[in-house]
Design a protein around this nucleic acid. Sequence first.
DNA 1: TCCAGTGACTTGCATTTTGCAAGTGATTAG
DNA 2: CTAATCACTTGCAAAATGCAAGTCACTGGA
Lengths: 137, 137
Amino acid sequence: MAATKSFTRSPCAVANSLDIVGDKWSLLVVRDLLHGKRTYGELADSPERIPTNILADRLKRLEDAGIVTSTPYQQRPVRYAYTLTSKGKDLGDVLLAFVRWGKRHIPGTVVLGEAKAEGKRTTRKPATRRARRKRGS
Amino acid sequence: MAATKSFTRSPCAVANSLDIVGDKWSLLVVRDLLHGKRTYGELADSPERIPTNILADRLKRLEDAGIVTSTPYQQRPVRYAYTLTSKGKDLGDVLLAFVRWGKRHIPGTVVLGEAKAEGKRTTRKPATRRARRKRGS
DNA sequence: TCCAGTGACTTGCATTTTGCAAGTGATTAG
DNA sequence: CTAATCACTTGCAAAATGCAAGTCACTGGA
């Protein structure tokens, strides 16, 4: 028996996943990152208005969990750009499951980014339309 | 449209789903219910040892959200059997997504119930089913 | 009959986590 | 030199969590 990590609650995959992203904000941050947001400011700007202290904390936790990575994109006041690792990107399936469930069972909900234009063309992934920041300093 | 619900945070399907099941316990209760548990005692007996006050609270919330239904299976001290509605059963896909993610990214985690021969008859069926009184408050 | 025991919850706090508001440091615009 | 930004921190008050103990309605036993 390798991998004896002494789980906090149980070895259940669901329980352990919830210990990492089982709160009201973490998955929203992942959603935004998946949608192409990268800076603290962009993340804080989401319609759910996450308190900034919570955002800073979630970002830290997600980084500790290996879900996001922060790379400095500016030096003098050091500023970081947050991106998802592959572990983080894989949470997309969980998000998708939530989207399907929410759309089916909570009337009025939509998927941010494809709000209107509910036509057949599922235009996911809003093509990143943002000017490149200088990061290869 | 009855969808004049003025969402708490935003109309995002993910955000609203999280407002309902976005905590460390709710989905574990759903998991157990999906695995056939039905009484308070069976639910409280899970390896994660959910505090009983939290269990009572989650059951109440889940019922308010239309995810579980409680039917009395015994009258004299009135006792309820909890079962998932179709809305609740549909959360199975979300659970599945978490399972896949957890198994892939959190070493050592397993799926309760298919771990290793843990297969016992937990299906203790509360036989006497006399539906008569309804739960008032 | 009395009493310990059991299942299903409640109640009482102490601890922890939120969340709102305001503060801070670095740097740029004016 | 002052105002404004961005990206965070800090300070609490309020809410949620969790442990322990208590309650209620019975059951089985001495």
